Simulated assay, not measured.
Amino acid sequence: MRLERLMNEKGVDAILISNLLNVRYFTGFTGTTGTALAVKNKRFFVTDFRYVSQGKEEVEKNGFELICENISTFKKIGELLKEFEVKKIGIENQSVTLDQFKIFQNNFPEVEFIYLDDIFIKEREIKTEEEIQIIRESIKIAEKALKETMPKIKIGVKEREIAAELEYQMRKLGASKASFDIIVASNERSALPHGVASEKVVEEGFLTIDYGCFYKGYASDITRTFYVGDNPTEKHLEIYEIVREANEKAIKAIKDGITVHELDAIARDFIKEKGYGDYFGHGLGHGFGLQIHEYPGVSFKAENKVLKEGMVITIEPGIYLPNFGGVRIEDDILVKKNSYEVLTTLDKKLKLIKK
């Protein structure tokens, strides 16, 4: 089992899982209160009375014994540590607060704490077939929602109105929520890579929409840039085509074994050759899953990180020209052994949204 392997790798007798994303990943629990404990050949999930029925349904099929504790989760876990003679326990030091760590120390004074660092998020890099299928559905919902929203986009509409309509459509189609604050950036604001929807009204020019949703806990992440109006200038057409081609070139290079640095360079060098290298400052993409940003980061900053089969990543090059506008095109990609699968299906030809 995975947790047994991770315990052996870290040289611990037990692992305490308190971060709710990791709790969900290992136990299947989707509620808001619960802590998991793995000891040799035994798994426990501790929650309170509110989640007993839900917890039993979700965690027991994944091999966790549910314990209802309404007073002190840490006291109950302490009893289990004593029962199983735990000497060393792994904790999620990257997500545990200082106050939580003090509580752990006070409740488990005889136990040595071993930092797990990023072991869980690394474990989540490679998606299972079940996870990939849920991500596919999340993407389908997001794409359909954008198509439903498109008729509402026109000059004079506020960016926040577009974002609200898009989130409404995603929820209507089955999403639990948007996977992040939706970016709707029009005209010169499209030059802001994270131009979250504002009160600004849409004017003629570029309109960048970066959005996604959570479906059954898993994210999608898509960006498309449109031109609102009838007469894009040569510069609008030029930078759009450069970004689109950079996106395609990088995607075609994806396979198991390529480094993220190499992949980033394919798009970055192309944009640089076209004279816009100074206007593409962020990484080429990132992994996603239970979180909108997960490992691996697809960036010039990580030279030795290698893509592996089963990873799901974004490819999102961009060019951002201050006081003019910007373009970003983002697709979601499944890494395969010697190839890739583009999970997003929205057209990438420049669409003109007529006045």
Rank of each mutant, 00 (worst) to 15 (best):
H261G: 01
I333T: 00
K301M: 06
F300R: 10
I353F: 09
G257M: 10
V228N: 01
V157G: 04
A246H: 05
I254M: 00
S220I: 01
L192C: 04
R244H: 06
E203I: 05
S18E: 15
E294W: 03
E58N: 04
K252V: 05
Y215D: 04
L3M: 13
E165W: 00
H261L: 05
L146A: 13
L343C: 08
E234F: 09
G326L: 08
Y25H: 11
R24W: 14
I17M: 02
L192V: 14
E9M: 14
K127E: 02
G297V: 05
Y168V: 00
A302Y: 15
D347E: 14
E273Q: 14
E85I: 01
K177F: 02
E58H: 07
N22E: 11
G34E: 09
L146D: 08
I15Y: 08
I103T: 13
N187C: 03
K102V: 05
Q291I: 00
I254L: 01
D221K: 10
A265V: 01
F120N: 02
E273T: 00
K40D: 06
L6G: 00
G229M: 10
F324E: 11
G229H: 07
G285D: 01
Q105D: 01
R189P: 01
D117Q: 12
K336H: 00
E137W: 00
L321A: 06
K158T: 08
I353L: 15
A142Y: 01
K102Q: 05
K76Q: 07
R24T: 04
K355Y: 09
L307V: 05
S198H: 10
K177S: 12
D99F: 11
Y25P: 02
Y25E: 10
S95M: 07
F45W: 11
R224H: 02
E159I: 00
V260D: 02
K301R: 15
K351G: 01
L3W: 02
F26Y: 15
V335S: 04
Q54P: 04
D230S: 15
F101H: 11
F324K: 06
T149C: 07
T35Y: 12
I258R: 09
T233H: 12
H293S: 05
K122N: 13
E148L: 15
V59Q: 05
F180S: 03
N22F: 14
I15Q: 02
V86F: 04
E238P: 07
E161F: 06
T259H: 07
Y340F: 15
L290F: 13
T97M: 07
K152Q: 07
K255V: 05
T32G: 00
Y320E: 04
M1H: 15
G297S: 11
Y227V: 04
A265C: 03
G289A: 02
G297F: 08
E131R: 12
E4M: 08
F101L: 11
E125Q: 10
E262F: 09
E165A: 09
A191Y: 08
S176K: 12
M7R: 14
K177R: 12
K200W: 03
V201I: 13
I242R: 09
D331G: 14
M150E: 15
I114M: 08
E60Q: 11
T47H: 05
K122E: 13
M7Y: 12
I89S: 03
S179M: 06
Y215R: 06
I139E: 04
K61Y: 06
L334W: 13
K301Q: 13
N247L: 13
N106T: 06
K158F: 07
I251M: 03
Q105K: 14
V202G: 01
